[in-house]
Amino acid sequence: MRAVICRAYGGTEHLEIVERELPRPGPGEIRVGLCAGTVSAADWRIRSLTVPPGYGLAVRAAMGWGGPRQPVLGTAFSGVVEAVGADVTRFGPGDEVFGSTGMNMGAHAEAVVVKEDGAVVHKPHVLMHSQAAALPFGATTALQFLRDRGRLRAKERLCVVGASGAVGTAAVQIGRAMGAHVTAVCSAANADLVRDLGAREVIAYDEGEDPFEEENRFDVIFDAVGQAPLKRRMRALRRRGRLLLVYAGLGTQIAARFAGRGGRRARDGIAQESHADMEEIARLAEAGDLRAVIDSRYRLSEIAAAYDRVATGRKRGAVVLLPDDV
């Protein structure tokens, strides 16, 4: 099979398409032939080592010092089960599935092996493979931050900062599905998109609008950008409000531990993929409460261009990666 390997941190010149042996599923594992994947912001950050301030050394220690220890990046996938290992009961050859490999990565390839009880589920019939692959990265992050860290409740006022990216578009939709009043912060060019996804209000940052000018405005702020001063974001929260730091540097995370007043608090962390959450994502998609937003599509052989698109910081939704023979 063909796979894209990253030989060193830095530019796309360190990417190379190579032939690798087709992986064999072990007990409790399945091999999925990929029909679609994505190049996410997380893939770009790892490949280029463009990480939040204060985390450079930690990422090198965890992922590999001179380059990724797992050279095949990519997490989200959608495809068809090609083979199953012993004791597999949930899936069989020919099943259409989608999911995420998480920190194991390996999805920038023509096939991937995952555990049957991992973050993989049957693909809803309402989704094409490209749409299914566009969901896991953003939806897993949005779901876990809003539900688990933010404990978002119906009728609360939710502000989504960075509302037009893969994570933000999922947060707008999941927040709406949870019954919140959603305010989206994005560029004016993306206002119609986020309104269509369920935002009740839109704040266009490039037209001089300030989401944090008014104090005590939001119950939950979901911030996937992390550029505004922490103090101003905390002041925009209502009493007992929650600031969700989806993207933040180490200094901001430390300061946030001491920034709460009036029951206000900040929460950060890393989303962890699970089978249960993938089932919930599939349910939301089948119910029409979550749809894929696709910015662009590239072939596996065009992965450098896909990374360049992500690096602009201007993508709308997900950048999808397709096999060359599709």
Rank of each mutant, 00 (worst) to 15 (best):
residue 194 V to H: 05
residue 126 V to R: 15
residue 191 A to C: 06
residue 263 G to M: 01
residue 168 G to E: 11
residue 158 L to P: 01
residue 103 M to A: 13
residue 193 L to V: 09
residue 27 P to W: 06
residue 209 E to V: 03
residue 110 E to M: 06
residue 154 A to M: 11
residue 250 L to D: 10
residue 273 E to N: 13
residue 84 V to C: 12
residue 141 T to A: 07
residue 228 A to C: 05
residue 321 L to V: 02
residue 113 V to S: 06
residue 110 E to D: 14
residue 308 D to Y: 02
residue 231 K to N: 08
residue 210 D to V: 03
residue 300 L to R: 13
residue 23 P to K: 08
residue 107 A to Q: 04
residue 274 S to G: 04
residue 232 R to S: 10
residue 230 L to K: 11
residue 72 V to T: 15
residue 89 T to C: 07
residue 252 T to V: 13
residue 109 A to P: 06
residue 300 L to F: 08
residue 234 M to H: 09
residue 248 A to D: 05
residue 55 Y to E: 09
residue 64 G to P: 02
residue 28 G to N: 13
residue 163 A to G: 04
residue 44 W to M: 12
residue 268 D to V: 09
residue 203 I to W: 02
residue 74 G to W: 05
residue 69 R to P: 04
residue 14 H to D: 12
residue 257 R to Q: 13
residue 286 E to L: 04
residue 304 A to Y: 08
residue 32 V to C: 06
residue 146 L to V: 07
residue 23 P to N: 07
residue 140 T to P: 02
residue 30 I to R: 09
residue 274 S to A: 02
residue 187 S to F: 11
residue 51 V to Y: 00
residue 94 G to P: 08
residue 203 I to N: 03
residue 240 R to W: 08
residue 16 E to Q: 07
residue 235 R to Y: 07
residue 303 I to K: 00
residue 285 A to K: 10
residue 43 D to N: 12
residue 304 A to D: 14
residue 172 V to C: 04
residue 119 A to P: 02
residue 288 G to T: 14
residue 295 D to F: 01
residue 36 A to W: 01
residue 96 E to N: 12
residue 242 R to W: 01
residue 209 E to R: 14
residue 69 R to I: 04
residue 309 R to W: 05
residue 2 R to E: 12
residue 165 G to F: 05
residue 97 V to K: 05
residue 325 D to I: 08
residue 304 A to M: 07
residue 15 L to G: 02
residue 147 R to M: 07
residue 131 Q to K: 03
residue 27 P to C: 09
residue 44 W to C: 04
residue 315 K to W: 01
residue 310 V to M: 05
residue 309 R to Y: 09
residue 244 L to C: 10
residue 196 D to K: 15
residue 157 R to Y: 04
residue 242 R to I: 10
residue 59 V to M: 12
residue 232 R to W: 00
